[in-house]
Simulated assay, not measured.
Amino acid sequence: MTTSTVPQGDLRLLDSGIAQNMLNSTELARLAYVAADGTPRVFPMLFLWNGKEVVFATFAGTAKLTALRARPDVAITIDTAGPPPQVLLLRGPAEVTEIEGVAPDYIAMQQRYYGPEQGAAAAAELEGSGVRMARIAVRPTWVGTFDFMTRFPGGRTAEEFASRGQ
């Protein structure tokens, strides 16, 4: 899909090569949210893309979950340093669901990032421990991409970007 004319923020950017590369990568996603004290936080996390949502898994009872329930609007970035860099920016509300035991998404993330053995080991380590986990799902409502080759920050053209500051 050619996305050079699709404006930043448009959900059609999820179909772009940049977005698909990042959503299918094993780069960490950085989840940005507002903490209970009103200050910003950014937390790097393993993630899954299920075609509609970016999904994270974490342990229940954390301050992060309390903050997400109070202020569900979040931002996510998944990126590579390059060259050329590839950057996917997402925004949307986070939905938190607590789960008794080990979250299936947690095991899937362990397998995706570290392989089948690590996924099985992670599950075995927590099995029967009485652990409680949470699933954080973010359905994007805003999407931005840039790679400094075909798309530039702010949706500018290569010429506009090159002439900045002149």
Rank of each mutant, 00 (worst) to 15 (best):
L46A: 15
L48A: 11
L48Y: 04
W49Q: 05
W49Y: 05
W49T: 12
G51E: 09
K52Q: 15
E53T: 14
V54H: 02
V55C: 11
V55W: 00
V55H: 01
V55R: 05
T58V: 09
F59V: 15
A60E: 13
A60P: 02
A63V: 11
K64Y: 02
K64N: 07
L65V: 07
A67H: 03
A67Q: 05
L68A: 09
P72L: 05
P72E: 08
D73Q: 14
D73P: 07
V74S: 08
D79Y: 07
T80A: 01
A81H: 13
A81N: 14
G82W: 01
G82L: 05
G82H: 04
P83L: 06
P83H: 03
P84A: 08
P84H: 07
P85R: 05
P85L: 01
P85N: 09
Q86G: 10
Q86Y: 05
V87E: 08
V87M: 09
L88S: 11
L88I: 06
L89T: 05
L90W: 03
L90G: 03
R91D: 02
R91S: 09
G92K: 09
E95P: 05
V96D: 09
T97I: 12
T97V: 15
T97L: 11
T97Q: 11
E98F: 10
E98A: 07
E98N: 12
I99E: 01
E100F: 00
E100I: 13
E100C: 06
E100K: 11
A103I: 15
P104L: 02
Y106G: 14
A108G: 06
A108H: 03
M109H: 02
M109N: 03
Q111P: 09
R112V: 12
R112P: 10
Y113A: 13
Y113R: 03
Y114W: 11
P116W: 05
E117T: 15
Q118R: 14
A121G: 02
A122S: 13
A124D: 13
E125Q: 15
L126K: 10
L126G: 08
E127H: 07
G128A: 10
R132I: 08
A134L: 08
R135A: 08
A137I: 13
V138L: 14
R139I: 15
R139T: 14
W142S: 12
V143F: 08
G144Q: 11
G144N: 08
D147S: 06
F148Y: 14
F148G: 04
M149W: 03
M149E: 15
T150E: 13
R151K: 15
F152T: 09
G154N: 04
G154A: 02
G154V: 06
G154Y: 06
G155K: 03
E160G: 07
E160L: 06
E160N: 01
E160F: 03
F161R: 04
F161P: 08
A162F: 00
A162C: 09
S163T: 13
S163V: 11
S163H: 13
R164Y: 06
G165M: 03
G165C: 07
G165W: 03
Q166P: 12
Q166H: 12
